[in-house]
Design a protein around this nucleic acid. Structure first.
Length: 853
DNA sequence: ATCTGTGGCCACCAGC
DNA sequence: GCTGGTGGCCAC
């Protein structure tokens, strides 16, 4: 059973890879499991043919992850802990019948998560055997420019793209970082740079959207029954394909053509031909894009096609369903809905530019495109109108992956390279899974054991108490702001504070509270945790090296004028991806769903963070600088001199070992008495607004607009004497706003609060918030409301005091409530400038002020 | 069904 | 009317 000879798995892999420049999407290993593992599958994307290729071996050799152990020899203990997949009979037949295989994922899932301490001899033996294989395959792939996950193959005879990319000054930068790093970190930094500097390919892809006849208006057809006909489908491809497929129905008219000539429209007389065409088109592309295809489009197609009336055989349906995933064989299906729901993507990659997780919501936020609205029911649309609607959805879906030079596709590729994960997984799974995959890969590469959950739990919990009830440990420090207006405030912040701490203080699950007696005196401030002095932790190495690269290499390169556009774009995408991963690196340590969850690590990280900022504040005081505010990793200093700033920074660098950046200097900052609430005006007139109610996404647009008008007025203030004039302007503006409210001139949509339903309606048991009340009214009107949707409602004088915008009339608006909200928004806002709302208005009550004008 | 963390502010609900 | 708790959104 040893893999050797010309028929061995390794040789076959080599052979398969030899003549192709390919991007390996995923090394998926499939197996039949009847005593021994039968076959392995390699799935990769061939750049030459622009197709997904499957290659598999059924010669009887085991997937590499099981080393040389026949399955029956794998100890029970291991079997229980490893994810050996029991294949269904059907799949086994597929494997043995030499047919195209629906790739089954086991994927090298932690086969050696045997646990126990590294000292256990018997296990050690097995690891050695395993190591030999893993080294063989992974080194083979890795060193040849492949990585399990997503890689370029770099031909030995060519200059490696790294060297090509890294010419002159850029190379000097990297060398500088390498020289500055501790020796243990150097190979990691080099490895990442090598991997991440590989060019990003263009991915040939097609977006699909289908429409189904609906039973009732507002009801989404049920993909499980798939009992209604598919009436249209639209395909938009990266090769310029624009295609709509329609089903002729006698009850609706054709109508007038509503789409451009360059969109191909084809009308089918029967549904089977339409479906069949969809299937054929899907197979033309390696990547299929949908928005919610896992739950709807592909699921519906899959079940619809199986109905006996059509007589499709299994082989003719190129879709297969996982539990929550739709696969397309042999390509890759990316459900963008899942990507955009990912909070890390939303916040860090797209800067919160969208809030609503619907296709319309995301595309309005990112690409200024909307869904097409129509009156009445979808069923009644003429065929051409339907075509226009359906095409638009597919077009938007495609565009979400193509805007900013294919930004999203590139981001997913980079994430998949860092995370050692297939692209479709990267697109579906959250950041904790990315980091899990990345860390497990590193364990395998090192030949290290992956600890069990219980082993990590044995380290104990947090040694601090959280400030917020119900949290597990104490987090970042927020300095009480000195209220009032401050001119010339400098903001200093620690660059990537938590990842820096993880690096500098050697934090990792195996180094915090390590078993060595001599380390126990190496205490972490404010806690009773200690850190290992003998060895460097794996998460410290991984996150530390990524941090160094982002802070010292990619971030500066993005701004480097010596580089061309293409290179800058690559660096920018890489920098974004690193930001996402680094930001989560500390969080996952304190998340119990994370397989390497280790509370002491999260606890220690936050504690050192508080220590760092506290010590820095002390130092500032010592230097005679006043600290007017600070939050977690930032300090706001009142008019410090250049020398003072330099002194603090040098001190932080030398004493704490963490870089302290001079981030910006405000022309002035206005603090209220509240934490996380301020307004800062930059020298160029740009304004940072933080935490103030007026900017929050749920407040009615007319209030937000008035708020930003006021901000604009304040941005023109440059000296204390300007405030007087600004105050008058703001006063007038608010008065205008009030008048239009009183005269009911504000359209309903501008009066709407927009609040997200964050869980199924039935789970709101403790209280019934207003947006839930509005949602209940919608439900009663026959509209479905799902978790994640944003509810637009207005406040009314009629019970229960709120109504969905769609059901409300202007006359029912409760003007008093809105006035109150306007007042409190501005009160808080003007409070930041040091005066009371009523006070500037010179009236005891807001009402008095308005009526007296 | 899925899922990085804590700190902070605000409005509203529900029980007293 | 007061108050603790819930829910949402934001800062970092």
């Amino acid at each position: 059973m040893v893999a050797s000879g010309s028929n061995s798995l390794s040789d076959r892999i080599k052979e398969a890879l030899r003549d192709t420049t390919a991007l390996n999407l995923s090394l998926l290993v499939s197996a039949s499991y009847d005593g021994e593992l039968k076959a392995a599958i390699l799935k990769f994307y061939d750049l030459d043919s622009q197709r997904i290729r499957l290659w598999y071996d059924k010669s009887g050799h085991k997937p590499y992850c099981y080393s040389r152990l026949p399955v029956q020899d794998i100890p029970e203990e291991v079997k229980k802990r490893s994810d050996v997949l029991e294949l269904k009979e059907e799949k086994k037949r597929d494997l043995l019948n030499d047919r195209d295989i629906n790739v089954t994922k086991i994927v090298a899932t932690d086969p050696l998560a045997i646990g126990g301490s590294p000292g256990e001899r018997s296990i050690r033996d097995r690891i050695e055997a395993w190591e030999a294989d893993i080294k063989y395959y992974e080194n083979f792939l890795y060193d040849k420019g492949w990585v399990v996950g997503t890689y370029y193959r770099i031909d030995d005879s060519n200059i490696s793209p790294l060297e090509y990319e890294m010419s002159g000054e850029v190379k000097v930068v990297l060398e500088g970082i390498l020289n500055g790093a501790k020796p243990d970190f150097r190979p990691y930094i080099m490895g990442w740079a090598k991997l991440l500097n590989q060019p990003l390919p263009e991915i040939r892809r097609v977006a699909l959207d289908i429409e189904v006849l609906s039973e009732e208006q507002n009801r989404v057809p049920d993909p499980r029954t798939a009992n209604l006909p598919i009436i249209s489908a639209a395909l938009v491809g990266s090769d310029g394909t624009k295609e709509v497929l329609l089903l002729r129905r006698k009850e609706v008219e054709l109508g007038k053509r509503a789409l451009d000539e360059n969109v191909q429209i084809e009308i089918f007389d029967d549904e089977k031909s339409l479906i069949s065409r969809i299937f054929h088109r899907i197979l033309d592309y390696p990547f299929l894009l949908t928005f919610n295809g896992d739950d709807f489009d592909l699921h519906y197609l899959y079940n619809r096609a199986q109905r006996s009336q059509f007589g499709f055989t299994k082989d003719e349906i190129p879709i297969s369903m996982g539990r929550d995933v739709a696969f397309v064989k042999p390509g890759v299906h990316i459900d963008l809905y899942k990507t955009f729901v990912n909070k890390s993507i939303q916040v860090y990659a797209f800067g919160n530019k969208y809030v609503d997780h619907t296709l319309g919501g995301v595309s309005e936020g990112l690409i200024q495109e909307s869904k097409i609205e129509f009156e009445g029911a979808m069923n009644d649309l003429s065929l051409h109108e339907l075509a226009r609607y359906c095409f638009n959805d597919a077009w938007i879906t495609y565009k979400l992956t193509s805007f900013s030079d294919d930004l999203l596709m590139k981001l997913l590729l980079v994430v998949s390279r860092i995370a050692k994960m297939p692209v479709d997984d990267a697109a579906r799974l959250g950041v904790s899974n990315w980091i899990r995959s990345m860390m497990f890969f590193e364990h395998r590469r090192m030949g290290a054991l992956i600890p069990r959950k219980e082993e990590l739990e044995a380290k104990g919990g947090a040694s601090t108490e959280a400030i917020i009830k119900g949290k597990k440990y104490k987090g970042g420090l927020v300095v009480e702001p000195t209220s009032g207006v401050h001119f010339g405030v400098a903001v200093l912040d620690f660059a990537s504070l938590y990842p820096s701490i993880i690096k500098v203080y050697n934090l990792s699950y195996e180094t915090v509270r390590c078993p060595h007696e001599e380390c126990k005196s190496n205490l972490i401030p404010e806690t009773d945790h200690w850190v290992c002095t003998r060895r460097i932790g794996v998460s410290s190495l991984l996150f530390g090296s990524l941090r160094d690269l982002r802070v010292n290499y990619y971030k500066p390169l993005v701004r480097d004028p010596r580089l061309g556009k293409t290179q800058k774009e690559l660096y920018n995408v890489v920098s974004q991806a690193l930001k996402v991963i680094l930001n989560a690196s500390y969080g996952v340590m304190g998340a119990d769903i994370f397989p390497l969850y280790c509370l002491p690590v999260a606890d220690a990280t936050a504690a050192i963070g508080r220590y760092a900022i506290t010590k820095t504040i002390d130092k500032c005081k010592e230097l005679g600088i006043e600290v007017v505010y600070g939050d977690t990793d930032s300090l706001f200093l009142e008019t410090p001199s250049e020398d003072q700033i330099k002194a603090v920074r040098d001190w932080a660098e030398s004493t704490l070992g963490i870089e302290l950046d001079a981030e910006k200097t405000y022309r002035y900052v206005a603090f209220s008495q509240r934490k996380k609430n301020y307004l800062g005006v930059l020298p160029d007139g740009n304004v940072d607004v933080k935490g103030l109610t007026g900017k929050k996404s749920h407040v009615p647009p007319f209030i937000r607009k008035a708020f930003y008008d006021a901000v604009e007025i304040l941005s023109r203030v440059s000296s204390p004497s300007d405030f007087e004039r600004a105050r008058d302007e703001i006063k007038k503006m608010i008065h205008q706003t009030y008048l239009s409210l009183r005269n009911r001139q504000i359209p309903l949509s501008d009066l709407a609060f927009n609040v997200m339903i964050s869980k199924p309606l039935s789970r709101y048991v403790d209280t019934t918030p207003q947006h839930v009340k509005a949602a209940q009214l919608l439900m009663r009107n026959g509209k479905e409301v799902k978790a994640g949707e944003i509810i637009s409602f207005v406040k009314t004088t009629t019970p229960p005091g709120v109504k969905p915008v769609s059901m409300a009339k202007v006359e029912e608006i409760d003007n008093d409530k809105y006035l109150e909200y306007l007042r409190s928004t501005f009160d808080q806002f003007l409070d930041a400038l040091g005066y009371e709302f009523d006070e500037i208005l010179g009236a005891t009550k807001l009402e008095d002020f308005f009526w007296s004008r």
